[in-house]
């Protein structure tokens, strides 16, 4: 099939999210594409990264000869600590999350509904032993939840839906979605398209989306 528009790769999606994170925010980045966002925040912009297992001020992955075996992130990868960083236990870590102290959490998703419902922890009701980790706490606790994900699954199924079919992580949690095709806000009116990749039309985006998309009301030309 001929493609006449750009499709962002994972690094480009991460870079696009990073553009919108201002200095001074405390952020938790989920596993997968969200983790890549850290690589695209310029060092001059002080964004403090939180990890569920008790780290604030998390830095990038270490050089192979600089690995500290006592310092891992929630994805169990080795990380570093910036000057000013701190360690704490799990109850304090989730007090930061549940208590609304984290400005932003970026998560991956299986589905996001037009009312902001998020499904990202279990793929079917029959999966009796899924791993929830901290996803539900983050989804209800952070001040804002953004999702970064491919617009459609490998099978071509839209991840933006009217109602989630997978088990829910949280109700009405998501405020913005960054996909490889667009930036979409979740509003009381539903999905509002803020941005599309060059060469993509609104109609073509709507064709790939299983819920109604809206244009911003104040959109100029």
């Amino acid at each position: 099939m001929m493609t006449d528009h750009q499709i962002l790769n994972r690094a480009q999606m991460a870079a696009r999210v990073a553009q919108d994170i201002p200095g001074g925010w405390y952020c938790n980045l989920g596993i997968g594409i969200p983790t890549l966002i850290a690589d695209h925040i310029p060092a001059s912009r002080e964004v403090v990264l939180h990890s569920e297992n008790g780290i604030l001020g998390m830095g990038p992955a270490p050089e192979p000869d600089q690995i500290d075996p006592w310092l891992i992130n929630a994805g169990k990868q080795h990380v570093t600590l910036h000057p000013g960083g701190s360690f704490f236990h799990h109850a304090d870590s989730f007090a930061m999350i549940r208590g609304g102290h984290i400005d932003l959490c970026v998560l991956g998703a299986f589905e996001v509904a037009e009312n902001g419902d998020l499904a990202n922890w279990a793929t079917s009701a029959a999966d009796a032993a899924p791993a929830v980790g901290g996803a539900m706490d983050l989804a209800v606790g952070a001040k804002r939840i953004w999702v970064v994900t491919e617009h459609v699954t490998k099978d071509g199924k839209s991840k933006l839906v009217e109602r989630c079919s997978y088990p829910l992580t949280a109700l009405g949690a998501v405020s913005r979605i960054y996909t490889n095709l667009a930036v979409v806000d979740v509003t009381p009116q539903g999905f509002v398209v803020r941005e599309m990749v060059p060469g993509l039309t609104f109609e073509a985006l709507q064709d790939r989306t299983a819920a109604r998309l809206h244009l911003p009301e104040n959109r100029n030309g």
């Binding site: 569920e52 236990h89 799990h90 109850a91 870590s93 989730f94 999350i97 549940r98 929830v132 980790g133 901290g134 996803a135 539900m136 706490d137 209800v140 606790g141």
Partner: peptide, 24 residues
């Protein structure tokens, strides 16, 4: 158990709090 709920259930037990409400 969600990770934060697990942590808080443990913390509460240590603090003598029998139960708590959470949005999680």
């Amino acid at each position: 158990v969600p990770q934060g709920t697990l942590a808080e259930r443990i913390r509460a037990a240590g603090a003598g709090i029998p139960a708590f409400f959470t949005a999680t």
